Every structure is written in structure tokens, then in C-alpha cells.
Amino acid sequence: MEIAIRKATRLEYRPPKQKHLQTLINLTYHKPALIDEILVALGRRGRENSWIIIYKVLIIVHTLIRQGNGDQTLSRLQKHADILSIHRLKEKASAYASIRNLHAYHDYLVDRLAAFGECDMDYIKTSSKEHTGRLRQLAVAQGLLRETTIVQRQIGFCLSCKFQMDIGDNAINFNAQRLVVEDLLALFQVVNEAVVNILEHYFTMSQMDAKLALEIYKRFAQQTQETMEYLDNARKIQHELGISIPTVNHAPLSLASALEEYLNDDGYEDRRQSYIHEKQQQKTRASTMGEGSFS
């Protein structure tokens, strides 16, 4: 473990080698009790006065979250959050862009850890495991709006990682950018499903919930445009990133005016109750027809 960490964080302009990362990834699955030791050892390396080593420590932590035993890593990381600290980082003129990238990357990882604590789950990992995600089915009363807002906050931090390249070898920057792009794709899938769910229940929400839902929808429309632009720029360097970036689909973006008009209607509550009553009648008729088909 110690050897893998030391070799993965060598003071050189190259990202951590996959064989060293794989050693650590395997340990998170086969010996999860060692995750604390791995994080503590990474924390020691992160105290080195070198932006390269600090950058690599963040990349390793991110990789363990993505490819390793992610929930266990995030859970243990909450106890060792200082590992993500970059307060010892010093500016260096020859690596100005990389250090700016590192700051934004750090902020994103800190928020990802915070989001895990707030939701008690990692939406990025679950989006790749489940055909239909949690937010596609979660009820408003169970926290749909709150958790969607948290996912949108994560997307905002992803989009803030506007990687710029220094003159020379940028392999470390490309490594971090690839991880962020992969996270962004997963988060966008999650929030897209959440918005579809929100739209399906918008007309039955209380006016207070509908107001928050409208804010979420407007933010979704804005972030969708920003995400499309972000991914378009990333596609230009797909070869360097080592990934193929797909075209993403999304919920309709042109409903804000209609939703806002409904929200501001003086007869909002009457229309809401009428809509709920109509939905209940439809459900009753469907149930009756279903029973009749078996009689």
C-alpha cells in the first residue's frame, strides 16, 4: 500500500500509473478496513509542498471514489476531510493554469463529499448501476426537491472546472478533466430524470413546493445549455482525455413560462385540487377496468 501510494504520487509531470491505482482500488474492495490507512497515507503525501503531489493525491482520492469501494471511501473520507486540504499550495508562475485547475478541482471534490453527507448516497455511482435512478421515482414528500437541488449544486461545481492547459506536458490536467467529465455525464443523467419526475408532479404540488420546483427547472434549463457547451469543448480533446463523450438527451427546456403562469394564477389552489381530483378519478377508472377484465 505505502509503495503504491509513494509511486503513484511521484514528483513528475505524469498522472498516477494505472497499476498503482489498481492496487489501491483492489484494497478498498478486498480489505476495506485499510481504507482509513490509505487515506491517512495520502494525507501525509498531500502535505508536501508540491502542487504536482497535491494534484495527484486529489486524483487518487477521486479515482478510489469512482472505481473503488466508493461509499466506504466517501464515508471514511468524512472523518479525514483534511486530506483534501490544499492550504499549503503555493502559486508557481510556470504552472499557473494547472494550479488554477487544481483549486477548482479541489472545490468540486469537497462539494462531492458534502453532497454524500447530505444525501447519504453517491448519485454518481448509483446512476451507472440502476436503469432507473432514485430521483426518477422519489416522491416530493420524501425529499425529491431537496436532493435535486444538491445534485444541481454538484453540477455547478463540475462546470466551474474549466480546465486550462499550461505549456508543456498536461497529462495530469487531462486525467483530472476526464474524471470530472465522467462525473458530469452521470450527474446530468440523474438531474434529467429528477426534472422529468418533478414535471410529472408539478400540478399536484403545494404552491411553496411548486415555487421551488420552478427554480429547479429554470436552473436545469441554464445548466443544460452550459453542460452542452462544456461537453462540446471536451469532445475537441477526446483523444487526450481517453474517453468517448456521448450526445446526451434532456427534458424539454421551454416550459418555464407556462409553469410560471400556472404558479402565479390567483386560483392556484382550486386548480391544484381539481387536478388532484381528476387524477384520482382516472386512477379509480383504470383500477375498475382492470378488475373487470378478470371477471
Rank of each mutant, 00 (worst) to 15 (best):
residue 35 I to P: 00
residue 40 V to E: 11
residue 45 R to M: 14
residue 48 E to N: 12
residue 28 T to L: 00
residue 36 D to R: 08
residue 34 L to K: 14
residue 37 E to D: 12
residue 28 T to Q: 08
residue 27 L to I: 15
residue 46 G to F: 05
residue 28 T to N: 01
residue 48 E to G: 12
residue 26 N to V: 12
residue 50 S to A: 09
residue 23 T to L: 06
residue 44 R to A: 12
residue 32 P to C: 07
residue 33 A to V: 15
residue 44 R to W: 15
residue 47 R to E: 15
residue 22 Q to N: 13
residue 27 L to H: 11
residue 44 R to E: 00
residue 36 D to M: 05
residue 21 L to Y: 00
residue 43 G to C: 00
residue 44 R to F: 14
residue 40 V to R: 13
residue 27 L to F: 12
residue 31 K to V: 15
residue 42 L to R: 09
residue 49 N to D: 15
residue 43 G to W: 13
residue 50 S to I: 12
residue 41 A to S: 12
residue 37 E to A: 09
residue 43 G to A: 10
residue 23 T to S: 03
residue 30 H to I: 13
residue 43 G to I: 10
residue 40 V to K: 11
residue 38 I to L: 04
residue 48 E to V: 07
residue 29 Y to F: 15
residue 42 L to Q: 03
residue 32 P to F: 13
residue 34 L to N: 00
residue 44 R to D: 13
residue 43 G to H: 12
residue 51 W to L: 09
residue 44 R to Q: 11
residue 27 L to Q: 01
residue 33 A to E: 14
residue 23 T to D: 05
residue 27 L to V: 15
residue 47 R to W: 05
residue 45 R to G: 07
residue 28 T to K: 09
residue 21 L to V: 02
residue 29 Y to R: 09
residue 50 S to D: 08
residue 29 Y to D: 03
residue 42 L to I: 10
residue 42 L to A: 09
residue 41 A to C: 01
residue 45 R to S: 15
residue 36 D to C: 03
residue 34 L to D: 10
residue 44 R to C: 03
residue 48 E to Y: 10
residue 39 L to W: 07
residue 38 I to A: 01
residue 33 A to D: 04
residue 39 L to C: 08
residue 26 N to E: 02
residue 46 G to M: 00
residue 33 A to S: 00
residue 31 K to C: 07
residue 30 H to G: 06
residue 20 H to K: 04
residue 31 K to G: 00
residue 25 I to K: 13
residue 26 N to L: 06
residue 31 K to L: 11
residue 41 A to Y: 14
residue 46 G to Y: 04
residue 24 L to M: 09
residue 45 R to V: 09
residue 39 L to F: 09
residue 49 N to Y: 13
residue 24 L to K: 04
